[in-house]
Nucleic acid binder design. Structure first.
Lengths: 168, 168
DNA sequence: AAAGATTGTTGTTGACGACAACAATTGTCC
DNA sequence: GGACAATTGTTGTCGTCAACAACAATCTTT
């Protein structure tokens, strides 16, 4: 199967599958992906890379990465949560959350308050500075979301969110 | 594996947006995500993690990870490609591809043939063993794809692939 | 032929997920 | 009430992965 070709290296060769049209263009030199098309995971991975890069770039001025943003958002919406609760909600290891919070606390965006109900745990809160900062982050995140719309279309973005709502 | 079976309890309550329905269930204890809902990137990230885990698990018996599969697929469809061409096509660093190929070559699935046209580059080919192995991998990948269908629905999967076709 | 670009390679850095072990604390069971 | 198990935050290790930087060998350009 698929033995033919002398195919010089970089060279195009193989008249490929014209049916698709366009595609990334930037990346696609013109090599036939064939079997890779139709794999949901591959498309999702590539899209996820793109969307994260845009997020990081758009929020670059405030130096906030996607994971940090999700942590701040959850704490902002649910003040007093324990680290365990936040970690479970976002699907990240509590060990990883420690470093994330160390960083955010160092930047005075979050504070760990010793819980009196359970002296093992910390109640997480945004600082006043953290609140105003998060408001700014949200505006930038909204801008990023507009980039997504421009990229895949307004309806497609909504479709996407609807389809994947179960994973949120 | 390692599907942590959520223990009860987050001691939060705070009933929030119940309108969503279902959701992951495993993850969502009941903490309001609020602003996180509506962010395409977050949903995509969570979905991508799920889909990769299923892929890795489904192809676990043959010890093939998503990136390895994509490399084999591209080489199988375009024999003779250079490492640079494969890397560019898949959007991975050529430095990273070196290790990937080292591994695949060690397993006798791929061979690097010195190109006589350009003595800097290697022409990549599947070995005979690699061809038959890839056929098996593709059957398992198809099974994985069926898992995706079961998870999000047949039409939704097709919608997804259609929406993200530009990134493939 | 000299200067510059490309290819494969090695190495480093940092974000990230998965685990394991630990002290402090709480919960449970007898 | 007290021994034992479970939970919480923490530290550390390991492996994956993207992003760079540097390098030797080899084109390509002038």
């Amino acid at each position: 199967m698929s033995v033919r070709t002398t195919a010089r290296e970089t060279g195009d060769s193989s008249r490929k599958r014209a049916g698709n049209g366009a595609a990334v263009g930037d990346v696609a030199d013109d090599i036939g992906l064939d079997a890779l098309v139709g794999h949901a995971g591959y498309a999702v991975r590539r899209f996820q890379i793109w969307i994260f890069q845009d997020f990081i770039r758009t929020l670059g001025a405030v130096d906030i990465r996607p994971t940090q943003y999700s942590v701040l958002t959850v704490i902002g919406a649910n003040p007093g949560l324990s680290q365990m609760a936040v970690a479970k909600r976002l699907g990240i290891e509590r060990a990883r959350l420690v470093h994330l919070l160390d960083s955010l606390e160092q930047r005075k965006l979050v504070k760990r308050v010793k819980s009196k109900a359970d002296r093992r745990s910390h109640a997480l809160h945004l600082t006043a500075q953290g609140e105003t900062a998060l408001a700014k982050f949200k505006r930038l995140a909204a801008e990023h979301e507009r980039h997504v719309e421009e990229k895949i279309g307004k309806e497609n973005r909504e479709q996407l969110i609807r389809i994947l709502a179960g994973f949120t």
